[in-house]
Amino acid sequence: MSRVPSPPPPAEMSSGPVAESWCYTQIKVVKFSYMWTINNFSFCREEMGEVIKSSTFSSGANDKLKWCLRVNPKGLDEESKDYLSLYLLLVSCPKSEVRAKFKFSILNAKGEETKAMESQRAYRFVQGKDWGFKKFIRRDFLLDEANGLLPDDKLTLFCEVSVVQDSVNISGQNTMNMVKVPECRLADELGGLWENSRFTDCCLCVAGQEFQAHKAILAARSPVFSAMFEHEMEESKKNRVEINDVEPEVFKEMMCFIYTGKAPNLDKMADDLLAAADKYALERLKVMCEDALCSNLSVENAAEILILADLHSADQLKTQAVDFINYHASDVLETSGWKSMVVSHPHLVAEAYRSLASAQCPFLGPPRKRLKQS
């Protein structure tokens, strides 16, 4: 649940008159999402009104509101027999009622949201009550392989729920002597030191190019640089560091992050930047690179990204790559990247197969709970 924001200063709310007192009302909304995959969808019983329910879910471990999704594969009634019906059901509720908006969509073979439908307002739910769409999607369109909505005969539904909580009022009075504290510009100011090479005390040599930097900042941000300058190493004695395995453009992006906490060109060089972040123990930059690479996972590059993640101990990226390969196994196994990995990294192939087997055979063990970014 997000923290209630402070109200904007009255002088910034309007260029008009300023009242002596004010009130700011925040209506709290808890948002969460749920993904439900139905394997072997074409084998569902086709009687009209037949119901399939998901397991229950909530916004978190401490949330007492429990929900589930309900599907009628062949419609709810005679009117909707040519459609799939989809509903959000409130299973248990400690209150007399709650209000919530919802959005349903289908994830296609690429994991993209399609055929989205959402409620136009927050509906009133009581325990045992459901709301949804009797005519969510035509069955003939859903079952047509050309539309790519049932890869490997799996129907994957994605649901986003927004639950309306209580409202909170914050009130106060205006004073004539309003003090406005300026925003912190530390990142910009440190970035200026790097860009202008002011007050530098060490030189970093990268592929024949020299960059002036500040030992204190490098040591504070990177345990690797800290070790170089702290001990009686040649880098500490000469205040000069030779860097041979990072390209200059990648190095500059890494230094921008060290000084400012930002990497504006990360998406263009996420793979190389991940390697640099791993070498210099820049954990936050490493996770930022993992996130960017996750966003660009595809059938063509899944094997290469899995190898990269394994090489640099990028655990979150590795998990996402394995899950992606499992979901698109029939396509990924035909790529040149996968065939190369079979020869060069057989242990990763074995890991992917083990994960695929456990996903398809849940009876082999208890269900695993899916539970950071600093």
Rank of each mutant, 00 (worst) to 15 (best):
A329R: 10
M13N: 03
T319W: 06
P7F: 02
L142I: 11
V343C: 03
V71C: 10
C203D: 15
A321D: 05
E304I: 03
G337C: 08
V349W: 14
Q212N: 11
C294F: 05
S374E: 14
K28S: 13
E195C: 05
V322C: 10
C205D: 14
T37L: 08
S96H: 11
Q212W: 13
K31C: 10
S42D: 07
R121Q: 07
Q320K: 08
K135P: 15
C256S: 02
D82W: 06
R240L: 10
P73M: 07
E183A: 01
L308C: 07
E232C: 10
R368K: 15
Q360H: 09
A314D: 09
N72C: 10
I307H: 10
N239F: 09
S80A: 11
Q360D: 15
P346L: 09
G75V: 10
Q173F: 03
F133T: 14
F125K: 01
G132C: 00
M233K: 14
R121D: 09
I305K: 02
P362Y: 15
L193C: 11
V161D: 00
S197V: 15
P9D: 06
K74M: 14
E79C: 09
E300K: 07
Q209I: 08
N40H: 05
E253L: 06
F104Q: 02
L204P: 15
G192N: 07
L273S: 01
I305R: 09
Q165D: 06
F363R: 15
I27D: 00
L76I: 15
A116T: 03
M1I: 00
L90P: 02
R198E: 14
F104P: 00
P5M: 01
E290Q: 03
S42P: 08
F104C: 04
L297R: 00
Y280D: 00
K31W: 08
K372N: 05
G337V: 07
C294R: 12
D77Y: 06
P5W: 14
S55L: 07
V246N: 03
A216R: 01
L317N: 00
A329N: 05
M228K: 07
Q120I: 08
S119W: 00
E160I: 07
Y259Q: 03
Q26P: 09
E230T: 14
A146Q: 01
N169W: 02
K369A: 02
A329H: 01
V51H: 05
L149D: 03
A352F: 07
V51I: 02
A352G: 07
S358E: 07
A216I: 13
P94R: 12
K318I: 08
K115V: 12
P17W: 07
L356D: 00
M233Y: 11
S340E: 02
D291K: 09
C93W: 12
E118M: 02
I27T: 09
L348R: 04
G208T: 14
F133M: 07
M269K: 04
C361P: 09
T37E: 05
A270R: 02
L282Q: 08
K339Q: 07
L306E: 00
E46H: 10
V18R: 07
G148D: 05
H312K: 15
R368A: 15
P362T: 13
V30P: 11
Q127P: 04
R185E: 06
T335Y: 01
R185P: 02
P362G: 15
R284C: 07
S55N: 10
I137T: 05
S295A: 15
V206M: 10
E78S: 13
A116I: 15
N108T: 03
V71N: 13
F32N: 11
Q165K: 11
R121H: 15
N62V: 11
L333H: 14
Q360T: 12
V181S: 06
S105Q: 13
L348C: 06
V30L: 12
S197L: 13
C205S: 12
H347V: 04
M178N: 05
W131Y: 00
E253N: 03
I38D: 00
Y24A: 03
G148F: 00
R124H: 15
L371M: 04
D323Q: 15
N40R: 12
E235R: 04
A276T: 04
S330I: 12
V91R: 04
Q320T: 07
P182A: 08
S355M: 10
F257P: 00
L193D: 04
A100D: 00
V91A: 09
M255S: 10
A220P: 14
C205P: 15
R354P: 03
T200Q: 11
T156P: 13
K279F: 09
I305M: 12
R185N: 04
V181G: 10
T260P: 00
M13G: 02
A122E: 12
M117R: 11
R138A: 07
K115A: 04
L149H: 05
F41D: 08
K238H: 10
I325G: 00
L149A: 02
K66E: 03
A352Y: 09
R240I: 12
G208F: 12
E210P: 09
E232Q: 07
Y353N: 00
A109P: 09
W131A: 01
V343A: 10
K286Y: 03
W67Q: 00
E20T: 06
V181L: 04
P7V: 04
K53D: 09
S80I: 13
Y34V: 12
K28E: 05
S119G: 14
Q26V: 12
F211C: 12
A227Q: 01
E283H: 05
A302S: 03
L89R: 01
M13E: 01
F199R: 14
V322G: 05
V322S: 04
D153G: 07
S167V: 05
E50M: 01
R370H: 04
L86Q: 14
E46P: 11
H347A: 12
E12N: 10
P9F: 03
G60H: 10
L107C: 14
V332S: 01
W338H: 00
F363D: 14
A359F: 04
S21A: 10
E253R: 06
A359V: 05
W67M: 02
E113S: 06
E247Q: 03
T37F: 05
I38L: 05
S96I: 10
F133K: 11
K134M: 01
P94V: 03
E79L: 12
L69E: 07
S105I: 05
V287Q: 02
R99F: 15
E46C: 12
E118T: 11
C203K: 15
A146H: 04
G60F: 12
S14K: 11
F32M: 14
G172D: 08
V29L: 12
F324P: 00
M341Q: 00
P73W: 06
S15R: 03
H345V: 02
A352I: 07
P10Q: 11
L186G: 02
N301A: 10
R70H: 13
G75C: 09
A146V: 06
I137M: 07
R185D: 07
Q316K: 11
F141M: 13
S15V: 10
Y87E: 00
K252V: 06
N147I: 04
S15P: 06
P248W: 09
F141I: 08
L306I: 06
E195Y: 07
R370V: 13
A207P: 10
D77G: 07
Y34D: 08
W67V: 11
A216P: 06
E230P: 15
A19I: 04
K369L: 06
R139P: 13
D315G: 09
L317V: 03
I106R: 14
D153W: 08
Y123E: 00
V164M: 08
F158W: 09
V342D: 09
V29G: 13
K279E: 03
P17E: 14
G111S: 08
K110F: 13
T335V: 01
N265C: 02
N244A: 04
E232W: 14
V91M: 08
D82H: 14
H231C: 14
Q173A: 04
Y87W: 01
Y87N: 00
K369S: 03
R221C: 15
S330C: 01
A281Y: 04
A350V: 05
L65P: 09
L306A: 12
L86K: 01
A19G: 12
V179N: 06
S340W: 14
